[in-house]
Nucleic acid binder design. Structure first.
Lengths: 132, 132
DNA sequence: CCGTATCCAAGATGATACTG
DNA sequence: CAGTATCATCTTGGATACGG
């Protein structure tokens, strides 16, 4: 007896659907870009390789922990390279890959859209918040 | 005596920098798009107005709570309109605004990028994860 | 200089049950 | 049909201190 309730069918649909979601290329990209420090780090690398300490200065909002974490993820995703030079103290350089440069361009489109439309969004929020 | 320690100066810089960050148009857009159900709801509305229940069917992954929450935020941001028709039972229609349609186009660019590059990213992840 | 480990707060999401 | 309320869980991000 396969008497699944309507409730059960809905749950199954959700599970299946969520599997699809995780495979969506769009969401993969968004989850990379939307991480708090990703965009700033990519921008800081736009004009050439930078040492860890230089990036820390270029992105003063990030704690060292978050900067390192962000860089590790970008490296894992093939967006930046990490080069360690053995000296005392150690030297570490980061640079954009071709893939990283490509993503940076998309990031610029998002920024352009934001600049073009952010006022409309903020205005809508004001109206909504005052209306209720 | 303004003897702020270097530690204190760094903290101040972070605070100031983070204020700037929150005002960045790019991050505002990304925080909208990156919410889990935003893209799917916008897509479901691409071809015309939909009732709440129709959206629930179009986005089966979302619970009713999340669907309502997502729609409320999109409404607040001026991306969709919400129209209530008094009848029994009540009828609620959602539709994209011009601003919402505009954002949907940006969303398509992100999706295109993902489709074009996702394999490179996944390959990079495999390499990274196997290498370490 | 560069990175890691620990602890913690806040927000996002989800499960579930209930209402006009 | 559409929405709300409550509670649990997971993920992000931040503070702080320590290590090679």
């Amino acid at each position: 007896m396969t008497t699944r309730t309507a409730e059960q069918r809905r749950l199954d649909a959700r599970v299946a659907h969520n599997r699809d979601l995780d495979g969506c290329p769009g969401h993969a990209i968004l989850s990379i870009l939307a991480e708090r420090w990703t965009t700033l780090v990519l921008e800081a690398l736009a004009e050439g390789p930078r040492r860890h300490a230089e990036l820390a200065r270029a992105v003063p909002g990030a704690t060292q922990r978050m900067l390192t974490r962000t860089l590790r993820r970008l490296e894992r995703d093939g967006l930046v390279t990490r080069t360690v030079t053995a000296q005392v103290p150690v030297r570490v350089d980061y640079a954009l890959t071709e893939l990283g440069t490509d993503l940076l361009e998309l990031q610029q489109s998002v920024l352009c859209f934001g600049r073009r439309r952010i006022d409309d969004i903020r205005e809508a929020r004001r109206r909504y918040d005052s209306g209720s």
